[in-house]
Design a binder for these strands. Structure first.
Length: 270
DNA sequence: AACAGCACCTGTAGGC
DNA sequence: TGCCTACAGGTGCTGT
């Protein structure tokens, strides 16, 4: 469910609330959500001070006093919310971290997410490409030149660029006027430059709207995002293109649903 | 070595 | 109402 804008929204609203807090206790309700298997997560973080919370790609990274770190990945259906102790826990609550101001709760019905203990030496950006909001077109171009996969599929590869998922890949490609099916290494320099700009524009706008809520996504206060109201292609199959009125096409690419305007991508060749 | 395909899980929406 | 199928914001493994 959550891509970069949704994770960024959660991190921004949680950072001030966990900063400097001491973990009173952690309750691991589903040990198989903890990695590596066998980690005594509750034991590791009890009585520890949280000194920072940052996002890297789609990961939420907690930094503890003393240098230990761990991160939470929300998978498709994960939520990380801060709630008062008295509020009943939702079904599929797998982890509760008790801190001064309440309980940080990880809820994840599909369990594609997880909690990853890094200790002092584990690197939260292992296997992740650059942050798209800090990426230069030259770097994007060099990375895309190494693969012949469809550009849409390449954008979903977290080691090529970190944080883009199915919604924002489609939205950025539409904004750049690029056919999602063309080979990544066949983009012209102009197209790479447009795509780099579109990725930033779309992600920044989505963050301003606090992310997209299609079904599951909620922020740290349980509130939905609003960016879905201004999606231009994602989840708009058959609806008129907001630029030219042509019905939006949905295809399956690399196993993921993919949306584009058949007319706009022809107008924007090269 | 890169890449496509599928598996992992549960919930929900839509068709009949 | 209920049963069935399709599909969902992600990623990791397997086999080619």
């Amino acid at each position: 469910m959550p891509e970069l804008p949704e994770v960024e929204t959660i991190v921004r609203s949680l950072r001030g609330r966990v900063f400097g807090q001491i973990v009173k206790r952690a309750q691991v309700l589903r040990p198989d959500m903890i990695h590596p298997p066998g980690t005594d997560f509750a034991g590791e973080i009890a009585d520890r001070k949280i000194i920072n919370l940052v996002r890297r790609g789609k990961k939420i990274v907690f930094e503890l006093e003393g240098g230990d770190r761990f991160f939470i990945h929300l998978g498709m259906s994960g939520r990380l919310t801060m709630e008062p102790v008295g509020v009943p826990r939702r079904a599929h609550t797998h982890l509760v971290i008790e801190i001064g101001s309440g309980e940080l709760r990880l809820v994840d019905p599909r369990r594609f997410g997880g909690v990853f203990w890094l200790g002092r030496d584990g690197r939260p950006d292992a296997g992740l490409g650059p942050e798209p909001l800090e990426m230069h077109a030259g770097e994007l171009g060099r990375r895309l030149a190494k693969t012949r996969r469809a550009i849409k599929t390449a954008l979903l590869d977290q080691k090529l660029v970190a944080g883009i998922g199915n919604i924002y890949a489609d939205e950025a490609l539409f904004t750049a006027g690029i056919d999602p099916r063309i080979a990544a290494n066949k983009l012209s320099a102009d197209q790479v430059a447009r795509l780099n700009r579109s990725i930033k524009t779309v992600l920044k706008r989505a963050i301003l709207h606090r992310g997209s809520t299609l079904r599951d996504y909620r922020d740290a206060d349980g509130e939905p995002g609003n960016f879905q109201k201004v999606h231009r292609v994602y989840d708009r199959k058959g609806q008129p293109c907001l630029v030219c009125g042509t019905p939006i096409t949905r295809i399956v690419l690399g196993g993921r649903s993919t949306h584009f305007c058949g007319k706009c991508i022809k107008r924007n060749k090269s």
